[in-house]
Amino acid sequence: MLQCLEGFKPLFASILRCCDLNNQPRGLEDPELLARETVFSVSEIEALYELFKRISSAVIDDGLINKEEFQLALFKINKKESLFVDRVFDLFDTKHSGILGFEEFARALSVFHPNALVDDKIEFSFQLYDLKQQGFIERQEVKQMVVTTLAESGMNLSDDVIENIINKTFEQADTKHDGKIDKEEWKNLVLRHPSLLKNMTLQYLKDITTTFPSFVFHSQVDDT
């Protein structure tokens, strides 16, 4: 009889693993900690996790978002190399592993919440445009981003016109006249031209719990 039960052991083990109540979903081990350290509530964190699961399983269902899945989620097609998507992905990838876990995803998206601090949005956008991460934005970097944007949208401007736009930008932004834009100058520019931060706010994040209601079936807490 005992031998018979021995045979069932592997079966019982896998069933137990399946229903292991404290087997937290990967990346959502501590939604309350994430809620305390971001602008999201616990329910919003859990709803965001539903979005994360969708994105992270699009190509390889491994509970992590690689760059291909990141790009696919944004544009629904596999775009060719994109300077900006690379920069955004790198800023999400705070652990520099080349892949995004849920915690990185949630913390980065928190900055895009309408309720996030403007200073956090200014910091993120500065990092985004500081392509070489030198602590300032150089003229050459601005030109590279302008040319990239024009190429992406199929717009054509002569080099003179591009140089003119960049001259005008540095006239306004480079108040210390050292040929580069530092974080303070960037903040001053953005405060004078708030539209420069328009990409830094996603209204969708305000109703994430209604967009991804399925989180309630996995909710671990009663978030009133």
Binding site: K76, S82, F84, V88, V146, T148, T149, T169, L196, Y204
Partner: peptide
């Protein structure tokens, strides 16, 4: 005399901000 020329971009970052690659709302669109 009416100024009918194209809108003058105030600076390069406004142009860069038009890049679709910087618009993350795609995450939420099916």
């Amino acid at each position: 005399q009416r100024n009918s020329g194209p809108p003058i971009l105030i600076n390069a970052f406004q142009l860069i901000g038009m890049s679709s690659c910087l618009d993350l709302s795609g995450f939420f669109e099916k």
